[in-house]
Design a protein around this nucleic acid. Sequence first.
DNA 1: CCGTATCCACAGCGATACTG
DNA 2: CAGTATCGCTGTGGATACGG
Lengths: 128, 128
Amino acid sequence: MGTEKENKKLADCAPEELCPVRDIMARFGDKWSVYTILYLGQHGKLRFNELKSMISGISQRMLTVTLRSLEEDGLVSRAVFPEVPPRVEYELTALGRSLLQQLLQLSDWASQNLEQVLEARQRYAKKA
Amino acid sequence: MGTEKENKKLADCAPEELCPVRDIMARFGDKWSVYTILYLGQHGKLRFNELKSMISGISQRMLTVTLRSLEEDGLVSRAVFPEVPPRVEYELTALGRSLLQQLLQLSDWASQNLEQVLEARQRYAKKA
DNA sequence: CCGTATCCACAGCGATACTG
DNA sequence: CAGTATCGCTGTGGATACGG
């Protein structure tokens, strides 16, 4: 996710080819965006409180902020139904689903190399 | 590598436990890690001040912190040469280079979809 | 040249209370 | 049900000064 206000970060990346990844990583390296995308990817359409109970530990405020951010980037769609009580459904867009594929690939790498990283951390801890 | 069994469903990882993607995104979604990895990947071996001048805007403190973190995770190696003045060279490890490949793929996705994201942000700005 | 040590500003996030 | 408003704590990161 990232900025809750204006985004003016695209200017200060010196070499252009290196910039987009940075932007993506910064945007989704926050505490909740990845979970939100993963759960929406798995379940398709979800209501606000369904998501809230799935992503254990998230506060109402942060779920709102995260969803707004993803919606702003065109990764999640928001559908409001004029009922009582109100119903709002969130869903990944086509763009969001394509990002999900990237996250799944990164997930594979992470799963396969997690052990090595943890071992490296232990070695580092002992050495220092 | 591991057994076939360890291929656990991604959305099964609750926020409390160790979710590999989440961990990776959180670890490299910070302000400078991606740049550091990409520059080291492009140039092979680099000295501290070479990196510092390439990554425009980074402070000495943050470059040190970032490099220590990457070293701790076993992604970057650090070689100190007992000379006067001192020389220190940083380089991606094999693990680091494999992560680099993932970042490059994510970079491709980001480059290809950046336009759509920017358009979505503009639409959102006008709508709201 | 390659760091460490402080200090501090500010954004991220949780907790809580209130609303259509 | 699905938010918005407000407040305060905390961690990240920038500036600066000092050390091997």
